[in-house]
């Protein structure tokens, strides 16, 4: 706060012991333009609101109209019965949509599928990307190549990834069955199996995101203070001990980021299901977001679909805040954001 006040003041930083007279000079020196800097305590404020409006007009308009307003509108629609036609009246139905939502087995099943994504995040993405990060954290040439190789799946467009895997997982002539056949396993209909399909899609999703999480972990590992590591080497700790007792405890912040984004992200899964199975076979692989999409754009139940949307927003915000709250232990408030800001500076 103190620092900000210091930065905000025009003269304080350029000439720390400046006088008020000098302050006026600098303001008039701008020849009619607005004086927008504050001195500590007294505000030199002329037409600052006007400036703010000019600066923020476009951002506020675009961001509100195409992002904030639709989110608010979802909440409004979730209390309505509406088929999406512009001319048709929306009928207020109170909590009816939410009641329908929770009574439907399809929706509960879609939540179960979101849980599958969470499980795969924690059991597959987390260990593999952390191990890979340990392998390639040193900045050698070969590691840089490996990082590229690991990261490529994350870069690819979801449409391309989904289709590649769809073809490779095909029952007849798919590459996966072909490889398994080589080792004597019978072919399996990976995406046609009502029970297993969701796990298969979640694993493809893991294949995509292991690369990006690996990079996040690499950043976390390189940020571990090197003096502690050197001290441990001097004390004769072997590599495994160093990882367990030094690297991991020092990466709490990174793990927190991973947990939050992995768990909250599982609630929002959409693209990969949409491309690979479109919820099928039947509704076996539907997740809340694909259910919402189908209800709105195929069945024309916009109100009901919106209640699913609200539920997704609510759940992901709840998870984000809950995890931040529980994992924040002893850090004083505000420090978290400071940290993020610093990271934002690159």
């Amino acid at each position: 706060m103190k620092r900000q006040a210091k930065l905000a003041c025009l003269l304080q930083s350029s000439a720390p012991r400046s006088t008020a007279a000098f302050d006026t000079i600098s303001c008039s020196a701008k020849r009619g333009s607005v004086c927008f800097y504050e001195r500590r305590g007294e505000k030199v404020k002329k037409n600052k609101t006007g400036t703010a409006i000019i600066l923020l007009f476009i951002p506020v308009l675009v961001y509100s109209l195409f992002f904030v307003y639709p989110i608010g509108y979802t909440v409004y629609l979730s209390f309505m019965k509406w088929n999406g036609m512009a001319g048709v009246r929306k009928v207020f139905v109170g909590f009816q949509n939410y009641r329908t939502l929770f009574s439907q087995a399809v929706f509960r099943h879609s939540l179960g599928n979101a849980v599958v994504f969470m499980a795969v995040s924690l059991l597959v993405i987390f260990p593999i990307s952390f191990l890979l990060a340990l392998l390639v954290s040193k900045g050698t040439k070969i590691n840089s190549f490996l990082r590229t190789a690991y990261y490529i799946p994350t870069l690819l467009p979801m449409a391309a990834t989904g289709m590649m895997w769809m073809f490779m997982l095909a029952y007849n002539g798919g590459a996966v069955n072909e490889i398994l056949g080589f080792f004597g396993f019978p072919p399996h209909d990976w995406l046609g199996d009502t029970r297993g399909a969701i796990w298969v899609v979640a694993l493809v999703n893991a294949w995509m995101y292991i690369g990006s999480n690996m990079l996040i972990f690499v950043t976390g590992i390189t940020n571990v203070p090197s003096d502690i590591l050197e001290a441990a080497i001097v004390d004769g700790a072997d590599p495994l001990q160093r990882i367990i007792h030094i690297t991991i405890p020092n990466m709490k912040e990174t793990f927190k980021v991973f947990l939050t984004s992995a768990i909250a992200g599982s609630v929002k899964v959409f693209d990969i299901i949409y491309v690979m199975t479109d919820g099928g076979p039947g509704t076996a692989t539907d997740v809340p977001a694909t259910l919402m999409y189908d209800q709105a754009f195929l069945s024309g139940r916009f109100g009901y679909a919106s209640s699913i949307g609200v539920f997704i927003i609510f759940l992901s915000l709840l998870i984000t805040f809950a995890l931040n709250f529980f994992l924040d232990e002893k850090e004083e408030s505000g420090r978290g954001t400071e940290k993020l800001q610093r990271r934002g500076k690159l």
């Binding site: 992002f67 509108y73 929002k268 919106s306 949307g309 609200v310």
Partner: peptide, 10 residues
């Protein structure tokens, strides 16, 4: 923090 998919309908 807001999921973009949740606003597709409106």
């Amino acid at each position: 923090a807001l999921p973009i998919h949740a606003m597709l309908v409106p």
